[in-house]
Amino acid sequence: MFLQQLLNGLTTGSVYALIALGYTMIYGILGLINFAQGEIYMCGAFVAVLLLATGKVNFYLAFAAGMVAAALLGVALERVAFRPLRGAHPLVPLISAIGASIFLQSLALLLFGPNDRPFPIQFTFSTITVAGLPLSTLQGAILAAALGLMGLLMVFVRYTRYGKAIVACALDRDTARLMGINVDRMVALTFFIGSALSGAAGVMMAIYYNATYPRMGLLPGLKAFSAAILGGVGNIPGAILGGLLLGVAESLGAAYVSSGYKDAIAFAILIGVLLLRPQGILKGRGD
């Protein structure tokens, strides 16, 4: 029972971690919170579900299309709601992102209606026992895919030219510009990658919960933000750690404390972290 809950927590936690990476990367480079991250996640899920519902594409193509669509939406969002406001008081892009988030959510509501959509294709998943632990292959696949994407991101950031350029921009934008790095392009790239990860998270959750709907991004967005703060905002390993911890805490809390207030657990953790250790577990760049 305990191990089962732990596993459930790790599965949702790995999805929170993927979204938290988007928050943390964008925060790292711009010092801003992208309020519409949850809507990007929703967009990824919708594109994959709608494509699969046509019956003409296979699953992997739809998954990739969801990620690409989410990434493009992220880049467009940066162009429309963030870039014209760079240099203004931080309040201004924050409100603008809130506006964008509401806009996208209600656009989805108008286009797709308020009802849940089931995932169009059925997977046959079995439960296998790994070291005495009942593991559903669906959970295993989600965990593996999420951890794989995180691993790819870490390699990209640490070992490629573009990854290093993003880190340089996050450390000091002006110096990076002096070194010949095209900062605008790196910001766009950051939005592209962060949003693609959120899009992937959206598709995974659409399969896991078998439901896709316009407001699906609100709570995971909020929880992923809490995860990013928990791990230390601006810190990439921190976001992963924060996401996994939050998922486990939520799952155990729902099982042993109260399931009615499951969604409040992430919030309680957020307040607790802000009170006791605002820089997060691994030191982030938040004050």
Partner: peptide, 20 residues
């Protein structure tokens, strides 16, 4: 807990507060 920190935190914390 929030107002001693950066301006963005209050927005998210109050959003969460609304949900709760």
């Amino acid at each position: 807990p929030t107002l001693r920190l950066k301006e963005d935190y209050l927005a998210i914390v109050t959003l969460g507060f609304g949900v709760i």
